[in-house]
Structure formats: C-alpha cells, structure tokens
Design a protein around this nucleic acid. Structure first.
Lengths: 360, 360
DNA sequence: TTGTAAGCGTTATCAA
DNA sequence: TTGATAACGCTTACAA
C-alpha cells in the first residue's frame, strides 16, 4: 500500500562473494563425506548421531571430530524419509493474536525445542477451509503430533490425523481416545477463588458478565459462577448478563447493569476485555472502582496490571499450558497406541486493585 | 507444579477402534498406489500434482480422481529429498510475546500459507546459544528461507544460512547482499507526523523519552525526533530522557520530567509501555492528560485505544510487515543468486485522546 | 503425451 | 563393533 522496494543497495567485494559461492554452495556435506573423513561407514556415523547402537569410544570420537570438521548438518528430510518419523509438531490455532496465545506459543515452541522438536504454526483464522488445508499439510509434513488449540474442528479431520498415527492434543474437548489427549482448562477453580474472595470481602450481590465459547450453549464459567455463588454466599442476589468477549459488549453490559433496579456490589466478567469495557462505562457513569463497585476480569492480559485501578483477574499460566501440552504430545508420540490422557490446567485468582469491600 | 494427569478416561468400542487401526494404519497411500489406481505412471501423477509438464486433460482428470479416491497426501519429506527444495520457511524471533509479534506472526504465517509454505517458529529468548541451535535446525530442515526478526544475530550464523542457499530476510540490518534482503521499519516518518501534529496544536516545548534498541548507541527514533522538532517547531524547547521500553522506566521519566524547572507541554515516548508509565505517574501527580500535558506513544499496542484517555500513538501495520517480509523471502527464493532488496515499512500517527493544544 | 528408472541422503537390516 | 546395501516415496532426466 505504501513505500516500494528501494533500488538494490551498493555492494563491494563481488569477487570475494563469487569465490565464496563456489566454495560454500558446492553441495552440502553428506553423511558419506563424514564417513569418509572419519574412515568409517555411513552406518557408523548414523549410529553415532542417533545413539542407536554401541560404538567404540575411539570410533565415536573420530566420527564426532569428522562431523565437526565437515561442518555437517544431517538432512532432516532424508532422515525422516528413512526412519518414518519427523521431529516436527504442529500448533493449530484460530487466532494467534488473541490474548492467551503469544505466551502459549512461546512456551510451546521452547518446550518443543528442548525435546528436539520443531514447531510449525498454523493459523486458521476461524476458517474451516483453511483448517482443513492445514490438516492436509500437516499430514503431508508427516508431523509427529499436533496441538489443536482451536475452538472446534471437524471431527473427520481429527480422525484423519489419528488414523495416520499422528498424536493429537486438543483443548477443552470432551473425550480422550487412543493417540489423543485433551488439555482442559479448569475454569471452575479460578472462578471459585474469585467468588470466595468477593464473599470474604462481604459482597452479597454479585453479577456475572458471561460469554460463551462453546456453540452448544454450555458455559463453563457461568455455571461455575452460579455454583460458587450458591456455595459461598448465603442469600446471594445475582444475575447473569450476556457479552461476547469484546470490549464493547462489556460497555453494553455496564449500561444494562446500571439500569437495573439495584446496583450490584461486584461484577465478575468472563474476560479482561469486557472488564475493561465495564470499567470505562462505569467510570463514565461517575462510579469509582472499587469504591462503588468491585470488578474482576479473566485472562490476566498484559494490561490488567497497568489499568487504573489494576484489575483483579482470574488467570492461568500460559507457560504451564504450553509445557503440559507439549508433554502430553510427547507422551503420545512415545507410546503410540496408548490411550490419551486428560490434562487439567488450573486457573487462579490474581488480586489487584479493582476489588474492595462493598460500601456499607 | 499443580494438578496431575487424571486417570485414563473410560472408553467404549474397543473392538471398533482396533478394527479402524488395522484399516487406517495400513501404510499410507503412496504415489504408486495413485498411479496404479489411475492406470498411469508415477511420473504422470507427479506431473499432475506439480504442474511440471503438460498432461492430457483426460489423464489429468483421472489422476485427480484417483488422488481423491485414494485419499492421497504426498509425502513432503520424500518430495523435498527428491527435488532439493522444501516449502518451509522459518521465523526467528527473540520473544514472541513482545507486543509487535503476535500479529506479525499471524500475518507471516497466513501469507506463507497462501503461497504454499509452512512456517516454523523459533524463539531464541535472547539466548545466543539457542539462536545458534535454531539456525542449525533450520539448516537441517533445509528450509527455503528464514526471517530473522531478532535484535542481533551472529553474522557467522547468517553466513552459514546464505552459504547453504537459504534466503534470509533480516530486520533493520544495515546492508543487503546476495540472497539476503532487509526489512527496515521507517520510524522517521511516523515520528515526523507526531511532531508535526504537536506543532500544529501549538506545542513549543516537547520532550522525548527515548529507549535505544541498538547496542551501538544509535537511536533512530531519538534522532528523528530531534530532527523533526528542529524542522517543525521554531524556537523549540526540548529535552531527551532515557528509558528502557518498560513501564517503570516511563514512570521514572515522568518523575524526572516533573522535577524539571518548567513542565513541557507534550511528551513523545519511544513506546506505548513507557507512555502508560508516564500516564500513570502524571495522573498521580495531579496532572490531567491531555489538558495539562499531551502524550504520544509508539507501537499502538492493544491497550492504546482502551486506556483513559485513549493514547495517541505512532504505529506500523503488523499485517503489512508480515506480508512484505514473506514477499521479500519469496522473491529471494524465486531468484537465487539475485541481490536482496531493502523493504521499508512506514510508520504513521494514530490520533486519539491523549493530545490536545497546550494550556494557554 | 506418457513411461522408465536413476537418484535424493538418510536409516536399518543383515552379515561380517 | 563395524560395514554393505536395501529401502523410504518422491522428482526428473531421458526414452519411447
């Protein structure tokens, strides 16, 4: 849309470059080069690299030396063609830019890396066609496993993966099965902490701004909220407002809440964005948080600790989510044919400045 | 640290599952299966898939049909082993969780996908060892190209890539060379718009809270700031404070600014985080933004439009950055041996509520 | 327009 | 403990 490629930048030393080209590009070194350099067979080199067989210490040393000298990097394509496995795992998501993902992706990649795996990233952008294409690519790539961090995926596609012996870890799916584990985020514990916190501050009139992730109408957070309120707050007054996770829906919910006969003393929003919307609208209405009303969010997005007041919020450790997802994948890969597991990631409350006792 | 794998979930239909296993896992279909099914040779199937040769329409149709019927997914490893190229590109970053990245990663992946490439992600976490390992892996994977979105990387490693005929696109590097392009973010235009905006509002005393990305002491934003002020504001008063991109350093800068003999009427921070720090501290000191002082940030992070007041900020389009990075990579891949290009990504001002005319 | 067959760089099975 | 050598599944000259 703007700006164009500049003209080619000036460059010195053409001759040198050309020479280098002739040297470096002269075919990458292969396992036979190393074998020759070490005076052994390719089988031995392979065994040294993969530690697949006992190799005499001296042979081993000279092979390693030869690898070093030749500046040898094994060809991953050839390796996996021959061995039938790859060291690649996929991470499929609907939207990498959504708040939870950046850190999750980072943690996922780092954990995979440490186990010798590379991560390929796939963003479906909520498009089922794209998702199907992505799955196809993953199969073509012969990935060892895939983490499906997307809202919902055609079960047929999942089968396609499982059937090809690719490990799958899904998020918040209901069932595990052979070769397929499930990471479930345990919203209930965090919600319970939040409600208990409000109850202990003395709140008796707490409302929830819900937003449902599942299309089937079930809503884990809302249900947990209602259940927790019933448990922690005797004679509670409560209500549930509907939002859609977006800032604006938080604002709309605030307007509804303000229009109600009696103002609640605390609000639990299903995510931070809506909480920020609530915050803005309530401030506009002249209310002070937390003096007039307490507010709790969900997700612990980057801004939660910077907002005015800093937002009390329920969150989960993205690092843990990433790590345990990779672990689950690895477990499935290591034990093909075994039954998948269910991994629960707890959520917890982070207390900040947006909650206080209700006005007397 | 918390929670443990639950016991295996119950499962029904073992028999069915076992049957499926026998069927599905019975060796993936290969190109010969398709060839046989279509009654042609493997070469023809390959030519249909890759569009590498003219194939008679009828033959083509029957091959496509056979591919469909066999549910055939070409083996990427075998393909690239045979062809010498892969459809994988790498994206190397120091920290995927930093503000610019999520959307950049998303855009990068989507653009790569549309061109038939898969993206492998590598997070160095600012660790040179890890970076070196990553480069090694990329070479082993025989990726077609790599985008180096990391602060600095050992030039030796870059050479290692180039020498192996892997296209490289770096960010904010100084030079381009054969097989290596450079994406530079043009901070100057955005800074200039920001300063011009302040000047047109009537500001004459504008300070900058700088933070340097480059270790060599050069600071593009600061230099652009000083230059723009000199150009747009006659008899300007100005000053530069040092920060480190973090919220707290914005707070510290605010304290310094407030301690100065005369308060400036506007502040340009080198990123949003510091701007938020400034905002918090100035509010604490009883100042109102933008009535008492105008504030401009840099990056347009997610919260810029949600803060109170919404932050005027300089930003760049992450979508464009991702797209043009992939384009540069593709160009290099398509024309091996050609000289790299320099791609400039402009920045621009987003006017929001944190800027206003100075008090009279 | 189609087919044959020789690689591509490993791993893994035997045999030595 | 090591070495030959046949896969692995595809692409691509070269032939037909």
């Amino acid at each position: 849309m703007i700006s164009i490629d500049l003209e080619e930048a000036p460059r010195g030393g053409d001759l040198v470059a050309v020479t280098r080209e002739k040297t470096d590009r002269a075919k990458a070194t292969r396992i036979d080069d190393v074998a020759r350099a070490a005076g052994v067979s390719t089988a031995t080199v392979s065994n040294v690299i993969n530690e697949t067989k006992r190799v005499a210490a001296t042979t081993r040393a000279s092979v390693l030396d030869a690898i070093e000298r030749c500046n040898y990097y094994p060809n991953a394509q050839a390796r996996s063609l021959a061995s039938g496995r790859t060291r690649i795992i996929g991470l499929l998501s609907s939207d990498f830019a959504s708040p939870l993902f950046p850190e999750l992706v980072k943690s996922f990649e780092m954990n995979a890396f440490e186990r010798g795996y590379n991560t390929v990233l796939l963003n479906t952008n909520y498009d089922p066609h794209r998702a199907a294409d992505h799955v196809r690519r993953l199969i073509g790539l012969k990935v060892a496993g895939v983490a499906l961090m997307t809202a919902k995926l055609d079960p047929g596609l999942i089968h396609e993966l499982i059937g090809r012996n690719i490990s799958v870890v899904s998020q918040n799916l209901d069932k595990v099965s052979e070769h397929m584990s499930n990471v479930v985020i345990d919203y209930a514990v965090g919600v319970d902490e939040a409600v208990a916190h409000l109850a202990s501050l003395g709140h008796r009139h707490i409302v929830h701004v819900a937003a449902s992730d599942k299309p089937d109408g079930t809503n884990v957070r809302r249900d947990a909220f209602l259940e927790s309120v019933a448990r922690h707050v005797p004679n509670a007054r409560t209500a549930v407002y509907e939002g859609d996770f977006r800032f604006e829906s938080g604002q709309r919910a605030a307007i509804e809440i303000l229009a109600a006969a009696e103002l609640p003393t605390a609000v639990l929003a299903a995510n931070d964005m809506m909480a920020f919307g609530l915050m803005k609208e309530m401030r506009k209405a002249g209310l002070s948080i937390p003096r007039d009303i307490s507010l709790i969010g969900f997700d612990d997005t980057a801004f939660a600790e910077l907002s005015e007041p800093a937002l009390t919020t329920v969150c989960l450790s993205r690092a843990e989510l990433g790590r345990r997802t990779v672990e689950a994948l690895m477990k499935n890969i290591a034990q093909p044919g075994a039954q998948g597991k269910e991994v629960r990631i707890p959520t917890y409350l982070v207390k900040r400045g947006s909650t206080a006792p209700p006005r007397p």
